[in-house]
Design a protein around this nucleic acid. Structure first.
Lengths: 149, 149
DNA sequence: GCCTTGCGGTTTAATAATGCAACCACAATA
DNA sequence: TATTGTGGTTGCATTATTAAACCGCAAGGC
């Protein structure tokens, strides 16, 4: 990708997020972390990516405060990677990606999993964007405003 | 990237979405499209990416049904790129990315824009994930279930 | 204690993606 | 007519990603 134009200094929050997690593998690693995977080998087998890339990605996610390394959990003295609060904050992004696929994918029959409410076992609703008074908002009902002070 | 492991056949809807829009520029192009940009030159100047890359990205987005080319709009006979319904369906993903940045970014003072309700001019609420009965759901309140038939 | 296996990487070489700059045809403008 | 802008294409240099080999350490069996 050549110098991969960093978007860090960009004022757009979308660009800033993408700068942190917009690469090819990070969101998939995070998705796996939400499903409870924590070990290097688990991620590597699940995603099928090269180990050196996984090393780099995990390090970057730790550096950015999205994952932390914990000393152990099952006794064995290996490191484990777990989501921080900042990492758990990515949940809506994963849900949005999932729901877009569910709604618009060409072959929905190939989709293997459904996100369900743990208590009732029933599918969740679509993510809702609401105004302060509760009105449901679509793309056309919103505007961007420069941040004031 | 060497064969850039396509995720098309993957059963995970998150992976499928990322396969379509998970590259370095697509979501930024789409963000610009939501702000009303439609011409090749507009995207190029706004994003500062190489023209050949923009050509490839726009073509891919059109192929995937996210953008369409329309013949004109201001009279001049140049093509314009506009969002399809499938493309407008990406709105929650952009909002989720934005809100993650707003909540967790290291330097929130650098964020330049706020998403507001067009009617009232007031900031929108956080994206809400709800159960069918309306309960607000967090990551821990959900599970993945295999799709049944 | 010694051997084997698995885990968590690092290193190397090949290949694909990106970026930059130059170029080009056509449309619009002066 | 000349000049500029638009929307690309083409080549080349640079960087990212990959697969595969290698490597040290820990754990477990004997």
């Amino acid at each position: 990708m050549v110098k991969r134009t960093s978007l860090e200094g960009n004022g757009c929050p979308v660009a800033r997020s993408l700068d942190a997690i917009g690469d090819w593998w990070s969101l998939l690693i995070i998705r796996d972390a939400f499903v409870g995977r924590r070990r290097f080998g688990e991620f590597q087998r699940s995603l099928g990516l090269a180990k050196n890339i996984l090393t780099i990605r995990l390090r970057a996610l730790v550096d950015r405060g999205i994952l932390t390394t914990e000393p152990a959990s099952d006794g064995s003295a290996y490191r484990e990677y777990v989501l921080t609060p900042k990492g758990r904050g990515l949940f809506p992004i994963l849900v949005a990606l999932r729901q877009w696929s569910e709604e618009f994918d060409q072959r929905p029959e190939e989709i293997a999993t459904i996100l369900v409410d743990r208590e009732t076992g029933r599918p969740v609703q679509k993510l809702a964007l609401c105004a302060q008074d509760g009105r449901l908002l679509g793309p056309a009902d919103t505007t961007l405003r420069p941040r004031t002070g």
